[in-house]
Simulated assay, not measured.
Amino acid sequence: MRAGDLAEPYPAVCTDDDAMDAARLFVERRLPALLVLDRDGRPYAIVPGSQLLKVMVPDFVLRDTSLARTFVEGDVQTLSEALAGLSVAQWLPGPRVLPTVVGLSADVLEVAALMVTTRTPLVAVVESDGERTRTTGAISAARLMEHFLDQP
């Protein structure tokens, strides 16, 4: 089985899109990761949901999580406040990690190995005609596990 056989349509956002709209898409569709495309439809980033929360957590709390206890829940800004006026590109945690991408002919074990080594729940599947690359879909960890569960 090849990546092109397992790839499914996956909702994506563009780097220029509004961050709030992207957050709503992520939440409403209960996505494992946000697939971000550049203006030409090529994968720009795949950001797991856990990393999207970084905008909410002060750096000093990331360095010492016990400091989170000093905050009263009402003192933490809402996601709406944190994302107001930001584009998707501005929201993404830095430095940017290049997305995990495979071609249509990649073997499913190769896809699984990439997920494991890059610690991502999503791999973008692309097609290239030599001049242009376009995203055809994605494979989620759940879809890949489903495939391996169904194997005899």
Rank of each mutant, 00 (worst) to 15 (best):
Y10V: 07
P11I: 06
P11G: 07
V13E: 00
C14R: 15
T15P: 04
T15W: 05
D16Q: 14
D17S: 11
D18E: 13
A19C: 04
M20C: 11
D21V: 13
D21C: 09
A22T: 02
R24Q: 12
F26Y: 13
F26Q: 09
V27T: 10
V27H: 07
E28Q: 14
R30I: 01
P32E: 08
A33L: 06
L34V: 08
V36W: 01
V36A: 03
L37Y: 03
R39M: 12
D40W: 13
D40Q: 15
R42D: 07
R42E: 15
Y44T: 01
Y44E: 06
I46L: 10
I46D: 01
G49R: 02
G49P: 02
S50F: 08
S50A: 15
Q51I: 06
Q51N: 12
L52N: 02
L53F: 12
L53H: 11
L53M: 15
K54Q: 13
V55D: 00
V55I: 15
V55Q: 00
V55M: 04
M56Q: 11
V57R: 04
V57P: 01
P58K: 05
P58V: 02
V61D: 00
L62D: 07
L62Q: 10
L62K: 13
D64M: 06
T65R: 07
A68Q: 07
F71N: 01
F71G: 04
V72R: 11
V72E: 10
V72W: 02
G74Q: 13
G74W: 10
D75Y: 05
V76S: 09
T78P: 06
L79M: 14
S80W: 10
E81M: 12
E81P: 03
A82H: 07
A82C: 13
L83I: 10
L83G: 03
A84V: 12
L86M: 11
S87L: 09
V88S: 03
A89K: 06
A89W: 00
Q90W: 00
Q90R: 10
Q90I: 00
Q90S: 08
Q90T: 02
W91K: 02
W91S: 03
L92P: 00
G94N: 06
P95S: 05
R96K: 11
L98G: 14
P99V: 09
P99E: 06
T100D: 01
V102T: 01
L104V: 10
D107V: 04
D107N: 10
V108M: 09
V108E: 05
V108F: 00
